[in-house]
Design a protein around this nucleic acid. Structure first.
Lengths: 341, 341
DNA sequence: CTTTCCAGTTCACTGGTTACA
DNA sequence: TTGTAACCAGTGAACTGGAAA
C-alpha cells in the first residue's frame, strides 16, 4: 500500500485547528464557527478523509457490527436468509460479519463466538439449523456471554430469542390441501429427521392425516439422507416400488420434490393426475419446471430481516433488563398452489 | 449488556505482571518464563479473555478484513461466488465484510468504498457485474485508493486485476456442441445485452456460427429483459412464433433455459428431438428437471476463491511494487452434456 | 570485566472521543 | 468557540536488572 490513511490529526494540522474541532465537524456538533466548519469540511472532502470505525468503536464500546454464523452459503435457504439479514442491517446501520461454514455440524461454537467477540460485534445471529444435538452447547455457553444472541430455525428454549418459520403449520397446510383435493393415500418424503425442521414438517403431515381419519402407515413415510434432488429421487423410487396405491406425496423440500418428479416420470406416472406432489420452500424455479410445483413458501428474507431487527432491539435494551427473558418469534409460511398438486 | 469485556490489563493485574507480558503470551512470543506463561494462560482461559482485533488492527495497520461489494445475494451466481470468497477467506485468515446491494446499479461506489475504508479493510473485491457503464467510476476512483482491488465478472482493463469466467469460450463450446450434434438453425436467447457477460456469451455463439458457415440471422436472436425464467419463457415464445424452422437454442443462463423449456412444452415441441436447448450456469436443479439440462458450468466458487487469493497477494506485495500492473485472470467453464441437447 | 541473554517493565503510539477547562 | 488531557485495548521499541558466557 502506498501511503498511510488520512487521519484526523492531518486534517486538523492543515486547517490549523485541534483534532477535537475536526471531530466536532465530522460528528455534526453545533459548537463550531460556520467559517471554521466550512474550511474543515472542504479539507475533509479534498483529502478524502474517512474517520476510523475501529478507533471509534473502541472508544464508544459499540461497533455497529453483528456476527452471523450460518451454514451452506450457496444453498437456497441460507443465502436468502443472509440476504434478509444484510438488507435489514444496512437499513439499521449495522455491518454484517458472516461466518458461514460448509458443515452444519459446527465443531467448536465457542471458538467461533470468541472470534466474533474479538471483533467487538454488538450481537450474534446463529443461523445454523438445529440438527441432532448441535445446539446443546447453547445452555452452557450463551449465558456467559455479555452480548445478545438470536437463533434461527430451532425449537424455542427458555430465555432464548428464536425466529423460525412455522414448519409444523406448513406441514399441516400442505397435507390438508392434498386431502381437500381428494387424495387419501398420501405419502411423506421427509428430510433428514435429525433436522428439527424436517421433524416439524413431518409432524404437520402426521397430525393432519390423523385429524382427517386417514391411514398413517409407516410404509408411507420415507426419509432422505439429505435435502437434495438425488435424495428425493431415491425416496420416491423406494416408495413407488412398495406402494403402488399412493396418490399423493408431501415432500420435505422443493429440491427433493424435483427429484421425486423425475422418478414419477420414470415410472410413467402423470403428475398430478396419477400422483400429486407438494414441496416446501418455493425455490425460484418452482413455477417453471414441469409440472409447476405446488409448494409451501417460506419467506426467508423476512426471516432474516426479523432476526436482525430483533437483535437490534436486544442490543439496545437497558442493562437493567439484561439478560432478557427471550421470545419465540414464529413466521407463517404460505401455500402456493400450482399444477403439481 | 451486562459487564464490560475482559481486557488485557485485567488479566495482567490478576497475574501480577504487566500488560506487555500478557500480550507476549497471547502472541506466542518466546521471552516469557514457562511458569509465568502457564499462569497467565490459565487466567486467560478461565476469564474467557479475547484480545481485541479492533485495537490490534489499529496498531498494526492491518485488519485482516476484506470488503466484498456485490449484487443480488440470494441469486445463484452471487451466493456461490460469495461462498467461495468466504471459504478462501477463512483459510487465509481474513474476515469478510459483505456489502451486498439489491440493485446491480450501484448509485454511489465512492460512498461504499469510503464505508469499507472506515473499517480499515485490507482490500476490496468488487463483485458487481459489469452492466452498461456502471464501472466507469473505476478509472477515477480506484487509482486514488491505497488498498488493492480485485474486480469480478468484468472486461479486463489496464492496471486492474480482474477475475472472470471465460464467457466467450463458454458460448463457443455451447454452440459448437449444438453444431456437432447436427443442428443447423440455432437460435440465441441472450441475457440483457447491457451485461458484459451476456454480450460475451452471445459473441461466442456468433463467431462459432460464422466459423461453421451457418446463417447468422438477426431473427434467430432474442434478448431477455432480465435473466429470469419468465424472460426465457417470453423470448422462446417470440422466437418460436416467427421461426418455426429452428432446431436448437443456446440460452443465456439456466433460469432462462428453464423458462424456454416451458414454452417448448406449450408449443408441443419435444426436447431435444424437435428442438435442443442448452443453458449456462449449471444450477443444482439442472440435472433433475425434465428434460435434464445440457449447460455450460461455471465454477463460481472457485472464481470467488481465486479472487480472494489474488487479493491476498496484492495486499502483501511490497510497497515498492505498488501500484501493481494488474492482471486478467480467466477461468474456463465446462460443458455438461445431459438430455436437453 | 565486558558482552550477551533473559524475563519483564515502561513509554509512546494507533485514531479517534469524552470531560473539562 | 476552541483547546487540553485522559482514555479505549492493545503492541513495538527501548530499557532494566541480574545471571551466564
Amino acid at each position: 500500500m502506498s501511503q498511510r490513511r488520512v487521519t484526523i490529526v492531518e486534517i486538523a494540522k492543515e486547517a490549523g485547528v485541534s483534532a477535537q474541532t475536526v471531530s466536532r465537524v465530522v460528528n455534526g456538533r453545533t459548537n463550531v464557527a460556520p467559517e471554521t466548519r466550512d474550511k474543515i469540511q472542504e479539507i475533509i472532502d479534498r483529502r478524502g478523509y474517512h474517520p476510523s470505525r475501529l478507533a471509534r468503536s473502541l472508544l464508544r464500546g459499540r461497533s455497529h457490527t453483528v456476527g452471523v454464523v450460518g451454514y451452506g452459503l450457496g444453498l437456497f435457504g441460507p443465502s436468502y436468509t443472509l440476504a434478509g439479514i444484510v438488507r435489514e442491517a444496512n437499513k439499521e446501520g449495522y455491518s454484517v460479519l458472516p461466518n458461514m461454514s460448509n458443515e452444519p455440524e459446527i465443531e467448536d461454537p465457542a471458538r467461533i463466538i470468541g472470534e466474533l467477540i474479538e471483533y467487538h460485534v454488538d450481537g450474534i445471529i446463529w443461523a445454523v439449523p438445529e440438527i441432532g444435538n448441535n445446539h446443546d452447547w447453547i445452555e452452557t455457553v450463551v449465558p456467559e456471554q455479555d452480548i445478545p444472541f438470536v437463533f434461527l430455525s430451532m425449537e424455542n428454549r427458555p430465555n432464548l430469542t428464536t425466529v423460525a418459520i412455522d414448519n409444523y403449520a406448513g406441514g399441516q397446510m400442505a397435507t390438508q390441501h392434498l386431502i381437500d383435493k381428494g387424495h387419501r393415500r398420501i405419502g411423506l418424503l421427509k428430510g433428514p429427521s435429525d433436522w428439527w425442521e424436517a421433524r416439524e414438517r413431518a409432524r404437520g403431515w402426521y397430525d393432519t392425516m390423523q385429524a382427517n381419519g386417514l391411514t398413517v402407515d409407516e410404509n408411507l413415510v420415507l426419509q432422505g439422507d439429505d435435502w437434495s434432488a438425488a435424495a428425493g429421487e431415491r425416496c420416491m423410487r423406494e416408495l413407488l416400488e412398495k406402494e403402488r396405491e399412493i396418490d399423493a406425496v408431501f415432500v420435505g423440500n422443493d429440491s427433493m420434490a424435483i427429484g421425486a418428479l423425475k422418478t414419477a416420470r420414470e415410472f410413467g406416472l402423470k403428475v398430478p393426475d396419477d400422483i400429486a406432489v407438494l414441496g416446501f420452500d418455493d425455490v425460484p424455479e418452482a413455477a417453471y419446471i414441469y409440472p409447476s410445483l405446488t409448494t409451501v413458501q417460506q419467506n426467508l428474507t423476512s426471516l432474516g430481516c426479523r432476526a436482525l431487527s430483533e437483535l437490534d432491539r436486544l442490543i439496545n435494551v437497558d442493562d437493567a433488563d439484561w439478560p432478557s427473558s427471550g421470545e419465540a418469534i414464529v413466521i407463517q409460511p404460505q401455500l402456493i398452489v400450482r399444477e403439481s398438486a
